[in-house]
Amino acid sequence: MPRFPLVPALVKNLFKRPLTNPFPAAHLPPSVGDALATPGAIKPPVPMPPGGRARVVYDPASCVGCQMCIKVCPAHAIEFVPGQKKVRLFRGGCIACGQCVEVCAKKSLSMDGQFLLADTNRFSDALVAK
């Protein structure tokens, strides 16, 4: 007799809850940014574990412009603003490796766990940290 070892599990699955998560929204919102700002518009995604690498946040006040972050950034996503002795971080090109956060002596850079960053303009305020 042919053997189909998967069949019992398949039939059992019929009576179980599906393992997939529903899509975060019923329909594509007209603006992802607005939808993110509105509580409840998007079903909460699976939470990130502690220490998950995601969006880099920049605090210009404490930055002394040492440029170490630029030196270690593999994606060339950070640029130096000479006049102000500050940096500008383009999240569109950031690969979230977290090296700049580790190398920063003044703790001006940190990660906040937010990963829903979609935008149609890669130079929008949401995607440039300055």
């Binding site: 270690v72 593999p74 090296q99």
Partner: peptide
């Protein structure tokens, strides 16, 4: 790039 950057590349 320098080796530290290449690692992530």
């Amino acid at each position: 790039r320098n080796p530290v950057q290449i690692l992530y590349l």
